[in-house]
Design a protein around this nucleic acid. Structure first.
Lengths: 127, 127
DNA sequence: AATGAAGGTTCCCAAGACTGGAAGGTCAAG
DNA sequence: CTTGACCTTCCAGTCTTGGGAACCTTCATT
């Protein structure tokens, strides 16, 4: 299977697949002509990676999760540990964004948004 | 005033100040020896930028807000427009993160996290 | 005067995770 | 044989810093 077929089946764009190969996440075989040759197992890995990325896992987490997936002796505790770490990061980001949002929304609420220069948003940024 | 003093007063690190100069957000004068020479107005701008960045505004928004701040003929409507645009982006990000968080939290909840390989988190990533 | 510390300067590299484009090889159909 | 759709590699850019090297200036101390 060529790269575009693998891309279509996995949902991961060709460019990204090449990048994943470059950083060692997948290792497709090569045809005599130099084209990458994807097995079903490669496509499965790519699909796995696509889903993990969609959940926001970073590349390093993806690498670890992929290794665990292929490790029959894995423990669910290790998987859970990684997932919990990622969850914490997400929560931190959400908290930061919510704080920003609250401040910003309040400023916007008090801004008349008319043709005058007077504006609490600008005012809040002033030294 | 040298760069480290300006950094201290504005709260913006020297490296970041140099970057802001590079992209034209501030234009400090230069001493004969080549050192940057910051006026109070430069420090005020940097402080303004620091606050705007802390609210999550992108560099382009910061540039626009800075211009509006210095424009006596500005309209609060224009400021509000930028702020609302940014609020939308924040809301989009929050929504994405909350969706991820919900999925991930549910998976984690159902993962026993023991020494066995069986794991709903990994399972959800499988093709 | 000489020296050393503490500042300043520029420039390059790294991050994360791709994405776009250029230059060129390969393949199947007409 | 040509066309067009693939494929390949390599280079560069994204965005906002942070780290560090190599070098210059200034000031204080020996």
């Amino acid at each position: 299977m060529n790269i575009s077929a693998a891309a279509e089946r996995s949902g991961v764009p060709p460019k990204t697949i090449r990048y994943y190969e470059e950083i060692g996440l997948v290792r497709p075989l090569r045809e005599d002509n130099g084209y990458r040759s994807f097995q079903d197992s490669d496509v499965h890995k790519l699909t796995f990676l696509g889903k993990a990325r969609a959940l926001g896992f970073g590349i390093d987490d993806c690498r670890a999760l992929l290794a665990l997936w292929e490790d029959e002796a894995r423990t669910s505790a290790e998987v859970k540990r990684i997932a919990n770490g990622h969850l914490s990061e997400i929560d931190t980001k959400i908290a930061g964004l919510l704080a920003m949002r609250a401040t910003l929304a309040e400023l916007i609420e008090h801004c008349r948004g008319d043709s005058r220069p007077d504006c609490p948003i600008i005012k809040s940024l002033e030294p």
